[in-house]
Design a protein around this nucleic acid. Structure first.
Length: 276
DNA sequence: ATGGTCCCCTGCCTGC
DNA sequence: TGCAGGCAGGGGACCA
């Protein structure tokens, strides 16, 4: 579910609440959530408990908590993952998968309905965890190279929409913001990378950055209870969406009815008149 | 390396 | 009312 703006909003909330905190105990309620930790649940618990959170980071839709043993607790929210800061005792959430108990009595809950999310322990490899080597920098990172990105897109034969969802090219963009950036660029997601002009490709990258930044300012996009920030609050970008989820409604630029199609097994929303 | 297919899950909504 | 099918914001394993 969550894309870069939502993950960044969550990261900020968790960082603010728990930077400097010490993890006293770890409880894993669903083994699937730590499936990427090969040595298993017990090993995961033993290695995480007792550690202090010294900071946090994010690349694309992956976030991590830096630990005082030099490693990182890497987290991906998948389609429905949430981190909730728990300050007062309350009944466990139905989809609580992992509970981190802190020395001061507070808790950090990893709640995840669909269990596509995961937590894993990773060594740091420079600025990012080693397990994220295959994930490209996102548009807000210093390492992000817009010109190289454009050149790469122009050589790709897949649809631009698919390329935007490829985390090895640009990370952090998911189905919502891919559609929104394409609409802003007046570009059909069906077009292949090698069929567009360099100018259009540059424009698209600019719109990706803009839409992600605006969504982050609004605290992300919430359609339902599956995305809330670490304090349980909604984001407000849904009202700004131009095409995502608006099939049949008028284009905010030209009034033509927005259409929905399927590209790469995912729904794609676009204006048939002003996107070419 | 690149591109395509299929799978992992749970819950909600629609139509028969 | 019940049930099947479609759909949902993601990533990765595996294949050609």
């Amino acid at each position: 579910m969550p894309e870069l703006p939502e993950v960044e909003t969550v990261r900020r909330g968790v960082d603010q609440a728990f930077r400097g905190g010490r993890i006293q105990a770890v409880e894993v309620y669903n083994p699937r959530t730590v499936r990427r930790h090969a040595p298993g649940i017990d090993d995961f618990r033993q290695h995480v408990q007792g550690l202090q959170i010294t900071g946090s980071g994010r690349r694309g839709k992956f976030m991590w908590l830096e630990l005082d043993d030099g490693r990182a607790l890497v987290c991906h929210l998948g389609m429905s993952g949430q981190f909730l800061v728990i300050t007062h005792e309350r009944e466990a959430h139905k989809h609580l998968r992992v509970r981190l108990r802190f020395a001061d009595g507070r808790e950090l809950w990893f709640v995840d309905q669909r269990t596509f999310g995961f937590l894993e322990l990773a060594e740091m490899d420079g600025p990012v965890p080693a397990t994220l080597a295959h994930i490209a920098p996102d548009v807000f990172e210093d390492e992000f190279d817009a010109d190289a990105c454009v050149e790469k897109l122009l050589r790709r034969r897949i649809e631009v929409k698919k390329a935007l969802l490829d985390q090895g090219w640009i990370s952090g963009v998911g189905n919502i913001y891919a559609d929104e950036a394409l609409w802003r660029a007046r570009l059909r997601g069906r077009r292949t990378g090698d069929s567009i002009s360099k100018r259009k490709a540059k424009e698209l990258i600019g719109h990706v950055k803009d839409v992600l930044a605006e969504a982050l300012d609004a605290g992300g996009t919430s359609f339902d209870k599956l995305y809330v920030d670490a304090n349980g609050e909604n984001g407000y970008f849904a009202r700004e969406l131009a095409v995502y989820g608006r099939a049949g409604q008028p284009c905010k630029r030209c009034g033509t009815a927005i259409k929905r199609e399927v590209i790469g097994d995912r729904s794609a929303h676009y204006c048939p008149k002003c996107q070419r």
